[in-house]
Design a protein around this nucleic acid. Structure first.
Length: 465
RNA sequence: GCCCCCAUCGUCUAGCGGCUAGGACAGAUGAUUCUCAUUCAUCAAACCGCGGUUCGAUUCCGCGUGGGGGCACCA
């Protein structure tokens, strides 16, 4: 059995979005599943729209997602891996000329209006095209049969010669795509369904070169979620860009897991799976035929479940990467032990890393905001001020060495007043953090330390007196 | 306009002739927890329509309808 060789062929003309990432992922999964080769080819023939920044974004995004390529440009921008290169179309001009020559010599291409056209085989006739309002030459070339691994048998007509080299001398997409896939010995073309209609052109080109076409597998597209409107997910849609998730410090494995589930499933009810398991189970026949709508909420949930199970060290490093980019981040990290303690307390409570700033802000400054609504609610209940005063009085004698000790201390105080833990918890939390959502009060006390807690309680009491 | 693909809860999906149509996200309710989250339990929620084929269709076929994509000297 011949080796599986698949490729992902993006063009660096725009931001790297969800749809591209999913196509890359499916190719990568198939390569890894079959023990084949995953090729990255850069389709940078559109000189007007190309940019090095977008090229770098492709490397960065793939790397971040963990989709490593066996052949293709080196992400450093210098050199490349693999022996079928160059892997950037802008450097493959000579190959295209050579293949153009082949068609010309075989009588399968001709020049017209300064451009080179691919010549279909079959009887020719002229017909007036109502839509284009002009007479066009049609060719009865017979049906093209595509045996798609996902779609099944698809039949299409290709009945007009088409341009393969523009009059400015540049080859067009269909031509370079096919030539590259031939010369790179690509065995399976896994790409979006939007290319299904182009496939008949490609098949004709393969025939023109006398080459058996590879296996085609057209995967469903990712559509906008109902709130976003209709149609295909585009770069402008919220949540469409990989960069966005990177900046929000999502876990790449969560995004990969979610993306894998868009158009594919393992056949049982499993959803959350490590990448290794997906690689093991992924196969082309398991891919769906219908388009999927993007759901940011499910992605967010996936991200949360991954976040919850991260080992402490990984979570800390994620937190550090996040704080490094925050305005007051450096200040927050000056005391490493303190920073770690705060982060680990926050980990089981947050849904995404980018919530950390807001969630832990009061740990790193005494000048934190007090939520007015929460304040009103808490202060209206019982004799909050009295509870606060009692707590301040009891504080110096309390043992702050552990959560359990602090809990015992507050409970002892509560019992002495014939009250419950909760009578002190809410107001203490408000005084110390300014809000009602946060880690356990005992943990907060312990991490903040006795002095700071006392100061905050006193300051708050004074402010409401 | 022409061509191609698709069709199960709001969303992602399981189902491959006979099922109380299953799971997950989101939603609702309740329980647990010092708050908030988490977690747990419960509830609500779908086979696009019409014709066939068949003893029997969500499942197979046709037609409609709906959704998506493609028809360039863009990629």
């Amino acid at each position: 059995m011949s080796q599986v060789r698949v490729r992902f062929a993006p063009s660096p003309t725009g931001f790297f979005h969800i749809g591209s990432a999913r196509t890359a992922l499916f190719n990568w999964l198939y390569a890894r599943h079959t023990g084949g080769t995953f090729i990255l080819r850069i389709e940078d023939t559109d000189q007007a729209r190309n940019s090095e920044a977008f090229l770098k974004l492709i490397y960065d995004s793939l790397t971040w997602l963990g989709l490593d390529w066996d052949e293709g440009p080196d992400p450093t921008g210098v050199g490349e891996r693999g022996t079928f290169g160059p892997y950037r179309q802008s450097q493959r001009g000579a190959i295209y000329q050579q293949y153009k020559q082949k068609l010309l010599e075989a009588g399968r291409a001709y020049e017209k209006d300064g451009a080179i056209w691919f010549k279909l085989l079959g009887e020719r006739y002229k017909i007036f095209d109502d839509h284009r309002k002009k007479e066009v030459e049609k060719v009865q070339s017979g049906p093209v049969l595509i045996d798609d691994k996902i779609r099944g048998k698809v039949e299409r007509q290709e009945d007009e010669d088409f341009v393969i080299f523009r009059s400015d001398g540049n080859p067009v997409f269909h031509f370079v795509n096919v030539v590259d896939d031939i010369t790179m010995q690509v065995s399976h073309i896994i790409r979006g369904e939007d290319h299904l209609s182009n496939t008949s052109k490609h098949v004709r080109l393969y025939e023109g070169f006398g080459v058996t076409p590879p296996v085609f597998a057209h995967i469903p597209l990712i559509l906008k979620s109902p709130e976003m409107g209709q149609g295909k997910m585009s770069k402008r849609d919220k949540g469409a860009l990989i960069e966005e998730y990177q900046q929000r410090h999502f876990l790449p494995e969560a995004l990969v897991n979610y993306l894998a589930l868009l158009g594919w499933n393992p056949g049982d009810n499993r959803e959350k799976m490590p990448s290794a398991d997906i690689v093991k189970l992924f196969d082309l026949p398991g891919v769906n035929q219908s388009n999927a709508k993007f759901d940011g909420r499910k992605l967010a949930n996936m991200n949360m479940t991954y976040l919850l199970e991260q080992p402490a060290e990984r979570f800390i490093s994620l937190a550090k990467a996040y704080f490094a980019k925050q305005p007051a981040g450096a200040a927050a990290m000056t005391n490493d032990a303190y920073f770690r303690a705060v982060m680990l307390m926050a980990q089981p409570k947050i849904k995404s890393v980018d919530e950390l700033g807001a969630y832990t802000g009061y740990f790193f400054t005494d000048d934190f905001p007090i939520d007015a609504k929460v304040k009103e609610k808490v202060m209206a209940k019982g004799e909050a001020k009295a509870r606060l005063a009692e707590l301040i009085a009891a504080l110096p004698a309390m043992d702050f060495s552990s959560d359990a000790a602090i809990e015992a201390g507050i409970k002892t105080l509560a019992e002495s007043q014939a009250l419950g833990f909760g009578d002190y918890q809410a107001v203490a939390r408000l005084a110390v953090s300014g809000t009602n959502a946060g880690p356990n009060i005992t943990g907060m006390f312990r991490v903040l330390g006795q002095e700071r807690v006392k100061a905050r309680l006193e300051r708050f009491l004074a402010s409401v007196a």
